[in-house]
Design a protein around this nucleic acid. Structure first.
Ligand code: ZN
Ligand code: ZN
Ligand code: ZN
Ligand code: ZN
Lengths: 131, 131
DNA sequence: TTGAAAATGTTATATTATAACACTGTTACA
DNA sequence: TGTAACAGTGTTATAATATAACATTTTCAA
């Protein structure tokens, strides 16, 4: 159910706008601080926008960092299948876009009887510069 | 660098003991509440024990839930390669032990120049009962 | 038009986690 | 045996992350 940006509400646009300009994960309260000039004064306004943006796949949450990053895949239908590369040195986070990986994981099944419809994968390591 | 339980400190033993008996993820403050009778009265005592237990692989953190669960793999050398199955219905969390999956992910490389040494994967879905 | 759903604004509070500092135990080895 | 290094402990306070609750407004399709 990908939603076009034109359909976003005012607060959702403001928050997405700021996150997209950042091209790095942002903390909710850092977003809040930075959009106060735009009229969003309280945490719930930011968290509600984030919740919706995450729901529609425009934004992903980096769970290990409690931070939010804009989706870099033009096609948002894979918001239920996310993979990230995280450098423990410089904290750089990149969304992995690897068809083989996503195909492998989307098709993953075990004998537990679980029916999976979503996954989130976070890889950690060191980037070139940090080695 | 797997560490034997005998090497654990008093607080670490108390916390691990409680988590192991739970066979489900526990929140830090729920652990704190439950070990107060054992003398751990303040958050840092629990968080410090958790930090160490996570570090040595005895406990894993379920990032999407801010909860902690005992490692079910007798062999703790894979604490840098974790995968979980999470039911969105009943919240049941199971550590996935699947050699093919872990081999695939441990060997994963992309052309970004990142050298990975750790990953965490969380699958979401519905278990048999919750479907 | 009107009513349901979504979004907003606001205050207060809950939940999760760490900083800082004084003190204690354990280990190694000069 | 002294003593230095280090890990662990106890404690208070506070930082950081997130949601509850409720009144109001906007949107938009039936
Ligand atoms: Zn994405
Ligand atoms: Zn780096
Ligand atoms: Zn494990
Ligand atoms: Zn279930």
């Amino acid at each position: 159910m990908a939603q076009k940006q034109e359909n976003l509400s005012k607060n959702q646009k403001i928050v997405l706008d700021f996150i997209e300009k950042a091209n790095q994960p942002l903390k909710a309260y850092s977003i809040l601080f930075n959009v106060q000039k735009k009229g969003l004064k309280a945490p719930p306004q930011v968290y509600r926008a984030l919740d919706r943006l995450v729901e529609i796949g425009k934004v992903h949450k980096i769970e290990s960092k409690n931070a939010f990053v804009a989706c870099k895949n033009s096609n948002c239908t894979i918001s239920n299948a996310t993979a990230f590369s995280i450098c423990d040195g410089c904290e750089k986070v990149t969304e992995i876009s690897n068809p083989k990986l996503s195909k492998y994981l989307s098709g993953f099944q075990d004998n537990s009887g679980m029916k999976y419809n979503k996954y989130n994968l976070e890889f950690f390591g060191l980037c070139k510069k940090c080695r």
